[in-house]
Simulated assay, not measured.
Amino acid sequence: MKNIISTLFLFSGLMLSAQIGINTDSPKAKLDVNGDANLRKKIMVSNTTDNTLSEGKNDQLLVSQGEGYAPIWKTLRIPEYEPNKFYLIFNNSFSDKNGIEFLTSEEPVMTTSKGATFTKGADISTLKGFKKIDGLSQTISVFSTESKAYFQFETVVQANFAGNGSPDTSIDYTCGIFVDNKLINMRQRNLKAINSQYPFLTHNQIGIVANLSKGDHTVSVACSRLASYGDTSKKLAIGKNTSTNINNFIAQSSLKVDVYEVPQVFNPIIN
């Protein structure tokens, strides 16, 4: 009888205590278990909206909402992947309406041939006369050592040429796609004066780079005015207008980025 009474007093003391510790003399919560806990039936969570109790569904996880908020049940979804196959992991597109422009005085003096200068992997700091299109400089993420990144750049190039005269008037220019300031793709073109004033053309190029290191990388687009012929006083604009026959909305630049990977890091999605 004494043992029963002592047990009842002990249980009553625990119920009246603000905190209960199991295998600890200094509990840090209302119930602090220092050791393994074996749950044989249910965990119920109170819904603060209607005060109902929820035990969750099969395969759901109990997720904290932070201090002062009750936890909630969430469904964990992990995409299924086939081994050694590439999947689209990163996809985004960017635009820029400010563009860049060049005067004849900004043409670089080429001391070597273009073929020797514009090589894959060249650092932008070694390429004279290049200007970046600011809005297209963006950060991309790579999660696998096996990847293929595709870059599609489109813009409009315009010069404020008058109607074509004699000799012919034209401008050579080039644009490059860079990853971490290293050249991965370049295209050179020539904009020529025609019978009508203020000619423009649409410039497209696609760059591909494989197996970037895991982590964040900066992709950027930069262009240069290379040479002028005939009337060399005219302005060249890339991604913006020089004359009112088009506007900056029409001339704006865009860059689309797709990164395909053989998955090595799985980022679960929680509903």
Results as ranks from 00 to 15, higher is better:
Lys2Gln: 12
Thr7Ser: 14
Leu8Ile: 14
Phe9Tyr: 13
Gln19Glu: 07
Asn34Ser: 12
Leu39Lys: 11
Thr49Trp: 01
Lys57Asn: 15
Asn58Cys: 06
Leu62Lys: 13
Gly66Pro: 05
Ile72Ala: 08
Arg77Ser: 15
Ile78Leu: 10
Pro79Cys: 01
Phe86His: 10
Leu88Val: 01
Ser95Thr: 14
Lys97Val: 10
Met110Asn: 13
Thr112Ser: 15
Thr112Arg: 12
Gly115Thr: 13
Thr117Ala: 09
Phe118Met: 13
Phe118Lys: 07
Thr119Met: 11
Asp123Trp: 01
Asp134Gln: 08
Asp134Ser: 13
Gly135Thr: 06
Val142His: 02
Phe143Pro: 00
Ser144Gly: 06
Tyr150Asp: 14
Phe153His: 05
Glu154Phe: 03
Val157Ala: 04
Val157Gly: 03
Gly165Val: 05
Asp172Tyr: 13
Tyr173Leu: 01
Cys175Ile: 00
Lys182Asp: 02
Asn185Pro: 00
Leu191Arg: 04
Tyr198Arg: 06
Pro199Gly: 09
Leu201Cys: 08
His203Arg: 03
Asn204Gln: 12
Ala210Asn: 15
Lys214Glu: 06
Asp216His: 10
Cys223Gly: 06
Ser224Glu: 09
Gly230Phe: 02
Asp231Leu: 05
Thr232Ala: 09
Ser233Asp: 06
Asn245Cys: 03
Asn248His: 07
Asn248Cys: 05
Gln252Cys: 05
Ser253Phe: 00
Lys256Leu: 05
Gln264Met: 07
Val265Gln: 08
Ile269Arg: 10
